[in-house]
Simulated assay, not measured.
Amino acid sequence: MRAGCFPVGALGWLRGALAALVLAAALTATLVPSPAFADDDENLVNPQQRPDSSFIYDTSIAALGSADAYYDNQTVQVVGEVIGDSIREGLDNRHKWITLAANEKDSTSTVSVSMTAEQAAKIDTYGKYGTTGTKLQVRGTFHLVCTEHEGLTDLHADIVTVVEKGKHHEDEFDVNAFVPGAIATALGLALMGVFYYLRERQR
């Protein structure tokens, strides 16, 4: 046998060993999770999670105002301004009703929200004339026709977060607001003077 040459049997054995190593490496990569995701709980799938609560639907109060059956009993998340006042729900004073108004300037939609008294205590200001109410982000279950509250369309809050505190607005004196009224008064007086002048000439 010349130097540098392998017997045919040894060459076949070497190829078989290399194939076995490649197969073992492939199986190891398949069975062992990647270190980047092995301890990441956020990537785990919970097979017991119900389909109707698998996702959080970021939506608007205006959309809920014209909602159809698609939104019924779904988990939704909305942001709005608290207006009006809180109303006690039941006799135990453990839950309260509040009203959330849409953030969009061109929308007047509102939604009634049922929340615990502890959640309602986060509200520092209720919106009214001259006052901007607390802005809340509310996550909960939307009911198109709530069986617990006599068919009312409402939102049962699970998580309530303050986005922005309320504030009061001082009325500012604006001189320009009186200009149209002053012009109208001056024209009225001028026309009245012309009327009396013409009437006196006809005598």
Rank of each mutant, 00 (worst) to 15 (best):
M1S: 13
G4V: 06
G12E: 13
L14A: 14
L14Y: 04
R15Y: 07
R15E: 10
G16W: 05
A19N: 08
A24S: 14
A26T: 11
A26P: 02
A26Y: 10
L27K: 01
A29V: 12
L31E: 04
P33W: 11
A36Y: 07
A38T: 09
A38K: 13
D39L: 05
D40K: 04
E42S: 12
E42C: 03
N43S: 10
L44T: 09
V45R: 09
V45H: 05
Q48F: 13
R50S: 14
S54D: 09
D58W: 03
D58S: 06
T59M: 06
A62T: 13
A67R: 11
D68A: 11
Y70K: 07
N73S: 06
S86L: 05
S86E: 12
R88N: 14
L91V: 09
L91G: 15
H95R: 15
I98Y: 02
N103T: 11
E104H: 06
S107H: 05
V113H: 02
V113Q: 03
M115F: 05
A117P: 05
E118S: 15
E118C: 00
E118G: 07
A120W: 04
T125K: 15
Y129P: 08
T131Q: 14
T134S: 13
K135I: 15
Q137Y: 01
V145D: 07
V145M: 01
C146L: 00
T147P: 03
H149N: 10
G151R: 02
H156I: 05
A157T: 06
A157M: 08
V160M: 03
T161P: 00
T161Y: 10
V162L: 09
K165V: 08
G166K: 03
K167C: 02
H169N: 12
H169G: 02
D171R: 13
D171H: 13
V175Q: 12
V179W: 03
P180F: 07
G181S: 09
I183E: 02
G188H: 01
L189I: 11
L191Y: 14
Y196F: 15
Y197M: 08
L198N: 12
L198A: 05
R201A: 05
R201V: 00
R201W: 07
Q202M: 03
